[in-house]
Amino acid sequence: MSAHVTATVYTSHVPAIGAAMDLGRTDEEYWVPLFEGYEPSRTWMADNTPDVIFLVYNDHATSFSLDFIPTFAIGTAAHFPVADEGWGPRPVPDVVGHPELASHIAQEVILQDFDLTIVNKLAVDHGLTVPLSLLFGQLDRGPDGGPAGAWPCPVIPFAVNVVQYPVPSGRRCLALGQAIRRAIDSYPEDLNVQVWGTGGMSHQLQGPRAGLINREFDTAFLDGLIADPVRVAAIPHIEYIREAGSEGIELVMWLIARGTMTDMSDPGGPAPTVRRRFYHVPASNTAVGHLILEDDVQRTREKESA
């Protein structure tokens, strides 16, 4: 038995969503449609909690300033504190890592020619904690309103530079996902692993064009990510910027997660099953997109043992 990818999850990671949950504002008219959209996903997640989440996200000038700008950074620590991004840390538990699997992935992926930066000290920001909150829901708080308890499973943070241009290409991200899949497959312990891709969808946070939203682009991206990720991976940087806004380019991170699915490593392998698809505008300045894609692990294993 080895570790195996059971599903991939995709979601925007808008900081205002975390703030709405932390401040108890999820019942407000503005937020109700968004949180209702994630309700079925929370039920699915409660029934399908993995042993480990490999979470692709980006740091937003929190742990990585302009002193160091790694393109791909993997968190191999046992513990990742929740960052203070200037408004105080979110009242959610610190993140527990999985150093053994993370170190294994780092080694195996570097051997496949992806030059990862290995990070043992990392405070995680909303890019990582908002997806956890969206999929696991509101956790209990301590008597002082601060965090209590723990997230349901360990998380390996995988940070991608999408702040300073050029960000890695979609094609590179898809291939990296394929390399990560091979690394997970070669880990000699029976672990149920989910890979999450976060960020996006269309949004622009800066300049007179701020507020750009492109529903048509986002819809086509979701369609393509499900059915034809190789085509989506060929979208050039300029198309993201022009069509999805300067910050919409975060969507390349979704391709890393997509690359870890069976049909990407085995061309004849089963296509993933769409368990959930949701799209909503707006959360603050951003279009929110969400997918859950399940791999048919049983069928893959039967094929392998045949």
């Binding site: 900081p15 205002a16 503005y30 269309s202 622009q204 946070l205 800066q206 300049g207 007179p208 064009r209 701020a210 507020g211 750009l212 939203i213 492109n214 529903r215 048509e216 682009f217 022009r242 069509e243 505008v281 707006p282 603050s284 300045n285 279009a287």
Partner: peptide
């Protein structure tokens, strides 16, 4: 963040927020 982003567009805070609720700035 919305106040900051909106401040760069030349729009008032209310107008920017209304634009986002209405689906955002069209491409």
């Amino acid at each position: 963040f919305q106040q900051m982003a909106g401040s760069m567009t030349g729009m008032t805070e209310d107008a920017y927020r209304a634009m986002m609720v209405a689906g955002g700035r069209s491409p």
